[in-house]
């Protein structure tokens, strides 16, 4: 059995003394797994994703991804890690409303050394695969919620990250759009061997996920 891709040991994230958003979590995720995280609001799900994605360093304990110990990495290392290993899909998209779909998708390229032409070609290909062909040059403010979430997913995939972290990716979407996005995620998981950590309440995602963990009060309870 090869070594797990993501390994949290006693990982703790404290915002204020005694208020632990993540409390001594032990969690291992093997390469290629589709992991769902559930739990009530405020239980620390987003904080857990932030730890894995290197947006926060644990207050104590360790977060290791491949061979990189995130708790001991500096800003440059963490940024390079986020750029090359992680794709984030946020609950609230975080798209630039006045920019086009293509421009939004290409943002991660600015922080890499991928040749721009090659990167842009990849952006177009992704938008096409996500069913947004013909909408590349449309401003994001003129796209529907489902189309926006697909732009956000394309943006997360531009740098071919081995890990995709998604926070309530279909929370804002209506049933039909939600199932399109979900189908897309599971297809990506299958075709590209992307390791997925998805925060959700949604039963349809839980059905697709290979494993589900539950959080409460910052702890992993199941």
């Amino acid at each position: 059995m090869d070594q797990p891709l993501i390994e949290l040991t006693g990982a703790t994230l404290e915002y204020a003394a005694r208020a632990r958003a993540v409390d001594a979590v032990d969690l291992t995720v093997p390469t290629g797994q589709f992991l769902a995280v559930v739990g009530p609001s405020g239980s620390g799900k987003t904080s857990l994703l932030n730890l894995i994605g290197g947006l926060e360093r644990p207050t104590s304990g360790s977060v290791r991804v491949s061979d990189l110990e995130l708790s001991r990495s500096d800003d440059r290392q963490l940024s390079a890690y986020r750029s090359s290993k992680i794709g984030f899909v946020f609950q609230s998209f975080h798209l630039h409303p006045s920019r086009t779909a293509l421009e939004n998708t290409s943002i991660p390229l600015y922080f890499t050394s991928t040749p721009m032409a090659e990167g842009l070609a990849r952006c177009r290909e992704l938008l096409q695969r996500l069913g947004l062909a013909g909408l590349e040059d449309r401003s994001v403010s003129q796209l529907s919620g489902g189309q926006r979430q697909r732009v956000a997913i394309a943006r997360a995939l531009v740098n071919r990250p081995p890990i995709l972290l998604a926070d309530e990716p279909i929370g804002h979407l209506d049933g039909e759009t939600a199932s399109v996005v979900l189908e897309l995620l599971s297809e990506l998981h299958k075709s590209e061997q992307v390791t997925m950590v998805v925060v959700t309440h949604d039963m349809s995602i839980l059905n697709v996920a290979e494993r589900t963990v539950e959080m409460a009060g910052g702890r992993l309870i199941r």
């Binding site: 947006l55 940024s79 750029s83 991660p108």
Partner: peptide, 16 residues
């Protein structure tokens, strides 16, 4: 700030 946060999330360093 939101876009700065996004840039950081997709790989921007503090220097960037």
């Amino acid at each position: 700030a939101r876009f700065i946060g996004l840039y950081r999330a997709v790989g921007a360093t503090q220097n960037d």
